[in-house]
Computed example of a mutant assay.
Amino acid sequence: MTVDSATLSALAEPTRLHIIELLRQGPFTVGEIALRLQIRQPQASKHLRVLSDAGLVEAEAIANRRIYRLRVQPFQDLDDWIGSYRSLWADRFDQLDTHLQRLQQPNSPDAPPPLALPTDP
């Protein structure tokens, strides 16, 4: 499983990430997005174009308005990709937990030696 670099690049810009977070609440027009994020409408349009080119959002034209919403598939792909790393890290954390439990057992060969306290001269 691989993730399109355009997806990661689009999400790396903070304003675009804020737009994605906003669109999680539901569809919005460009004007509503600009208003809620306190940016100018041309800025919002520019960021939405990048998100659209990356396949993260889709627009529906109604009269002279464009209503943007998230596309589900790219986020499912991203979750699948991250999930492959999740299992890798879960295994490593399990191994770390086992190692730490061994260290806490008295007389364990893996246990660190007791701390030596300084003596007065």
Rank of each mutant, 00 (worst) to 15 (best):
R49N: 14
R71K: 15
L115G: 07
P109Q: 00
I62S: 09
A34R: 11
L88Y: 06
L88V: 12
R86L: 05
H18C: 06
R16T: 11
S9T: 07
P74A: 04
G31I: 00
P113K: 02
I39T: 13
D77T: 10
Q105I: 05
Q73D: 14
R36S: 08
V50R: 13
D97R: 10
R40K: 08
L22C: 08
R49L: 15
R65H: 10
Q43G: 11
V57C: 13
T15I: 12
I33S: 00
L78C: 10
W89R: 11
L103D: 03
F28K: 12
Q38G: 06
D110V: 00
G55D: 12
L96N: 11
L70G: 13
L56V: 11
H18R: 15
P74T: 06
R65N: 10
S87F: 01
V3F: 02
L35W: 00
Q105V: 10
P27T: 05
P113G: 02
G26C: 09
W81N: 10
L103C: 08
Q73E: 15
Q41Y: 01
G31D: 08
R69L: 05
L70E: 11
P74I: 00
F93A: 03
A34H: 05
P14L: 02
D4N: 15
R92G: 06
T119V: 08
A111V: 02
V30W: 00
Q43K: 12
I39N: 09
I20M: 07
R102F: 00
A6C: 07
L48Q: 13
R66C: 03
R36T: 14
Q104V: 00
L17Q: 14
L22T: 10
P109N: 02
L115V: 15
R40G: 02
Q38K: 14
L35C: 01
L37K: 08
F28N: 13
L96A: 09
D97S: 14
A59N: 10
P14T: 04
G26L: 04
Q43L: 08
P114V: 01
T2H: 03
D120F: 09
R69G: 15
L48D: 15
R71Y: 04
L78D: 11
T29E: 06
L11K: 08
V72R: 13
L23C: 10
V3H: 03
L22Y: 03
D53P: 10
Q43I: 08
I20E: 08
P112C: 00
W81C: 12
A63V: 07
F75N: 11
T15L: 14
P114H: 02
Q105T: 12
D110L: 07
S108H: 03
I62W: 06
R36C: 02
A116M: 03
L48N: 14
D4A: 15
P113A: 04
S5K: 14
E21D: 12
